[in-house]
Design a binder for these strands. Structure first.
Length: 472
DNA sequence: TCTGGGGTCCTAGGACCC
DNA sequence: TCTGGGGTCCTAGGACCC
């Protein structure tokens, strides 16, 4: 699809080999036009190899994701007119459930619909073609759409599923990659028909419960997976492969900060926050390790994510240089929902302070002392920063002391409510001198009630991890 | 030839709880 | 003295997809 968009947008590329992907040293091919595929170039191939295989007139292009996204969107809009139930799988693939609307589901009817759709796709995209597979399940629709690309139309009529499926090589099945294929070949299983002759016990033995039963069913064309629209994201991540392996710890920290900022930016634009921070490190020899840490509360604070990521990186030996660095956030929640959870849990534990903060209960603290202007409400308001005077630290507002710092002394909420340290959830503590504390309100939900005050009694704050304590 | 970037799902083992 | 059974959560790694 990337190559098709490039050829659409640049007349001189039509009919010529086009390779889209990482053009620099360690890049790989994302897509090759059919002219380039004729020379053996294909997706996931190292670009260096593609350059050797492809002829001199080949265009090597960096991806223009914005252009592909625009093209994708007009097609997806078209699909949503066919049926309200559309599951977008990637930028260039989607399942459409034709059975939820009053479509004519006879074979001639479906062929007619598909032909019309293909014509419309070509029109709205300005000449990019699409392939369609129509069948009684996702499995077969997908396999059908892969046939006769890039302008194919395959309909598998009801009742002919097995006749269609069984002669195909096992690698055609979704979920059968190189590892599974190899294992099957080792036992002489090459076609889907062969696979249908293997017992469930044996498949579970080879591949585990989930994968084994999945293969058993797919080989029999048993697939009742529904078409699901609007699936929620489970993780957000960013990673980078360096041109040359990086050893310099200062550079690594900087890269980690940049990656964390990218992740958090996307997190926030989706209104999300996460409880788990992950890092990924790939060494020069391609061995890859991951490290993760899970907090009690979701965050979308870039500095906190970066700081946790740095702590995780410190657990990994990078002295030999690393090839790739990645940062991710998972166990996602959107803030409002999480606040309700926090509130419910805190209330259960009798922690009324956290409960009130989480639920934004107004008038909860009638006696609260007002020390600063109440922070603004709303997702777009900048996070207010409250800096306490030196001495016994005073922390302001319903945001509470937490983050990488540990509160050493007892924390007292003025009206006499005791707050346990573990329950001090959101907020960010920052400071350089003893007893000097800065609290930043965190997250899109700013407190809307009166600002409440509590004090951090003697001896102020103490860093949890000295090297991280000095925040720039 | 020398291996991207963004994701999803599964498994196994350990900690912890009742 | 000898050691359960079930469940949840977390981490690390791997397979797979586009």
């Amino acid at each position: 699809m990337f190559a098709a968009v490039e050829q659409r947008d640049k007349v001189s590329l039509r009919g010529k080999p086009v390779v889209v992907g990482g053009v620099a040293g360690r890049g790989v091919v994302a897509t090759a036009s059919y002219e380039a595929r004729a020379f053996g170039v294909h997706s996931a191939m190292p670009m260096a190899r593609a350059r050797r295989l492809a002829p001199l007139n080949t265009a090597f292009l960096s991806p223009r994701f914005a252009a592909y996204k625009r093209t994708s969107e007009v097609v997806m809009r078209l699909l949503s007119e066919v049926s309200p139930l559309v599951e977008q799988v990637s930028i260039d693939e989607a399942y459409v459930d034709l059975a939820v609307t009053g479509n004519d589901l006879s074979v001639p009817g479906v062929i007619e619909l598909a032909r019309r759709l293909k014509a419309e796709i070509a029109v709205v995209t300005g000449g990019v073609t699409g392939s369609i597979g129509a069948a009684s399940s996702k499995l077969l629709a997908k396999i059908g759409s892969d046939l006769n690309k890039p302008d194919g139309l395959t309909v598998i009529p009801p009742g002919e599923e097995l006749a269609f499926l069984h002669p195909l090589p096992v690698s055609r099945l979704g979920g059968v990659g190189p590892a599974t294929e190899q294992r099957l070949h080792r036992s002489g299983v090459r076609s889907v028909g062969d696979l249908a002759g293997v017992s469930l016990d044996l498949l579970v033995d080879w591949f585990g419960t989930a994968h084994g039963t999945g293969l058993f069913r797919l080989a029999r064309a048993q697939d009742d997976r529904p078409v699901v629209s609007d699936r929620e994201a489970k993780s957000v991540s960013a990673e980078e492969t360096f041109e040359v392996d990086v050893t310099d710890p200062v550079r690594l920290k900087r890269e980690l900060d940049l990656l964390a900022a990218r992740v958090v930016g996307r997190l926030r634009s989706g209104g999300l926050a996460g409880r788990t921070v992950n890092i990924k490190v790939r060494h020069g020899d391609f061995t890859t390790v991951t490290r993760a840490v899970t907090r009690d509360h979701p965050t979308d604070d870039g500095r906190l994510v970066a700081q946790l990521a740095r702590r995780l990186l410190a657990e990994v030996d990078t002295s030999g240089g690393i090839r790739l660095l990645g940062v991710g956030v998972s166990t996602l929640a959107d803030f409002a929902q999480d606040d309700l959870f926090t509130a419910a849990r805190a209330e259960q534990q009798g922690d009324l302070f956290t409960a009130a903060r989480a639920a934004d209960v107004e008038g909860f603290a009638p006696d609260a002392e007002l020390v600063t202007e109440p922070p603004e409400t709303g997702a777009d308001s900048p996070a207010p920063v409250v800096e306490s005077p030196p001495g016994p630290a005073e922390v302001t507002g319903p945001a509470v002391v937490a983050g990488p710092a540990v509160v050493a002394g007892p924390v007292v909420w003025r009206p006499g409510q005791d707050v346990r340290h573990e329950e001090l959830g959101a907020g960010w503590v920052q400071g350089s001198g003893l007893g000097r504390v800065t609290v930043r309100f965190e997250g899109p939900r700013r407190p809307s009630g009166p600002v409440r005050t509590f004090a951090v009694d003697d001896p102020g704050l103490r860093p949890a991890d000295p090297p991280d304590w000095t925040v720039p």
